[in-house]
Amino acid sequence: MAKLSDKEILELAKLAELELTSEELQKIPGELNSILDYVAILDKVDVKNLEPTYQVTGLNNVQRDDLKIDYKLNKEIMMSDLPDKAEDQIKVKRMIA
């Protein structure tokens, strides 16, 4: 399997919206590659005629009625957890110029 280059590591970090410290940039590429080397043992597994298992319960069609629910949510706490707010809205750095 592939070896990740430093450039790919940076692209990956960008995709995950992560900034890496210089220390992390030293360590993480080698660590990721050793992990990817390890999981390469799956290459040799024969999976012919198998379907993937995304969930193990075997459940289907778990749905709720189209009715309002009282979640017993404390909305004051939820709003006070916001890092920044204005006019009852979530205040964020400007999205478009």
């Binding site: 799956l42 597994v45 999976v47 198998l50 379907e51 993937p52 298992t53 995304y54």
Partner: peptide, 10 residues
């Protein structure tokens, strides 16, 4: 691939 091998394990 991992989900397929998961099926095998199950």
């Amino acid at each position: 691939k991992a989900q397929l091998v998961r099926t095998k394990i199950i």
